[in-house]
């Protein structure tokens, strides 16, 4: 037995294998930490939170603009964002999500339309091209894990253009056709509006019943809403359309440029 223990060559091999095992475990542990860093840090959860905060901020700007167009309360966006800043701290208590915001102010050219924002809000109604707009910039910090400075903008926009208002006088049933193009931020055409979204159609200042068609019109190169008002015996001096879209945002277009078509 003593001779066995004294056999240093055998001991060396055992020690060598032991060292190789220690090295293998060390390298494997480091490699494992490196490749699974993503999982340990719960990135998926952080991304979900940031994504949800971005969506909620956008929705908040939307509902604030909807309320602004209904009540003309120009502080509504600031009021809602202040509330949301406080409430957001309660919704993810373990992450301490902090939302900072700034409202866009001053003149901006947005989607080819000049908008003068006041407290992040603006509207221009009773014109052939009418719009309602809101805009705010945000920065999200997840302070518990040191993620800071994720910035994004939430522009919300609704624009309605009266591209043509034509009074057809050449037939026995005289009627009026109003062609509208409606778009939102992007600008992206809004294609899913129903008759109920066009809450009022005025001809010469008087509300009228109407029928609605929607289709892509190559002549305008855009998706178009056609509002037909029957039994219009004389050329109207003006037309007006009030729209409340699916987000409850309102805009009102008005035009005095009514063309007569005698065909």
């Amino acid at each position: 037995m003593r001779r066995l223990i004294a056999n240093k060559k055998g001991q060396f091999i055992v020690i060598a294998v032991l060292m190789v095992a220690i090295m293998t475990i060390s390298v494997a542990s480091i490699m494992y930490s490196a490749v699974t860093y993503y999982r340990h840090e719960r990135w998926g959860e952080y991304l979900s939170i940031i994504d949800n905060v971005e969506i909620t901020a956008y929705r908040l700007v939307e509902i604030s603009l909807a309320k602004y167009t209904a009540t003309l309360d120009s502080n509504i966006l600031k009021t809602n964002l202040d509330k949301w800043q406080r409430d957001l701290l309660k919704t993810y208590p373990e992450f301490r999500v902090v939302l900072n915001y700034s409202l866009v102010n001053g003149a901006k050219n947005v989607y080819g339309t000049s908008i003068y924002y006041n407290q992040g809000l603006n509207m221009s109604w009773n014109k052939p091209v009418s719009f309602s707009a809101a805009n705010a910039t945000f920065a999200v910090n997840i302070t518990s894990v040191g993620l800071t400075g994720y910035k994004f903008m939430s522009p919300v926009f609704l624009r309605m253009k009266i591209v043509d208002a034509i009074w057809y006088s050449g037939q026995s049933k005289k009627y009026l056709l109003i062609y509208l193009i409606v778009d939102k931020e992007g600008p992206t055409p809004i294609t899913n509006l129903q008759k109920s979204n066009f809450v009022q159609v005025n001809v010469s200042g008087t509300p009228k019943d109407f029928t609605l068609r929607r289709y892509y019109d190559a002549a305008y190169g855009s998706f178009v809403y056609g509002i037909r008002v029957d039994s219009i015996s004389s050329k109207p001096p003006s037309v007006g359309v009030t729209l409340v879209d699916t987000r409850s945002i309102k805009t009102v277009s008005f035009s005095t440029n009514v063309i007569e078509d005698t065909k």
Binding site: T56, I63, S64, A70, W84
Partner: peptide, 17 residues
């Protein structure tokens, strides 16, 4: 478990978790 927030509906600020 997934948490999702809604801030409000129509014109009203009324968060739901």
């Amino acid at each position: 478990s997934v948490t999702y927030i809604l801030v409000g509906h129509d014109w009203n600020y009324d968060p739901r978790i």
